[in-house]
Amino acid sequence: MSADTPPRVPVLCFGASGLRFAVPVAAVAALDAAAPAAVSLAALLGLEPHAAATRTVTVTGGDRARALVVDAPLLLRVLDVGDVVPAPVALPRNPAVLGFARIDDELVQLLDTERLLAAS
């Protein structure tokens, strides 16, 4: 692989409030771990909670770790640069939303866990 080749990034996809999100697998510390202090990802992003089968994902960012309640299904995918869709210029959004990607014909919002946890 050449040094100029963009990396392929394994991501974990999940839901919140009827939307799909993804974080890098490298930022996932645990899945479905018992975590009484888990917080809703939807609430963290300012979204309405959405009734769904929930899972708990512990993510890390910076020097923080936090258990998040997300919606099933949890899917592992490898993201290629061709999957990423540039965000519209000047789109107002939560700073934790880095950008977007097309995964399994769905539009998935890519989360920066460091920014996400900094805001929690």
Binding site: S17, G18, L19, L45, G46, L47, V85, P86, A87, P88, L91, P92, R93, N94, A96, V97, F100, R102, L107, Q109
Partner: peptide, 23 residues
């Protein structure tokens, strides 16, 4: 239309049109 967190109530979200996202 895909909603986007904290986009503002008047921004319904983004839509994919001709392989690009539009607010």
């Amino acid at each position: 239309i895909t909603r986007v967190p904290a986009a503002g109530s008047h921004v319904l979200g983004v839509a994919m049109l001709r392989s690009r996202l539009v607010p």
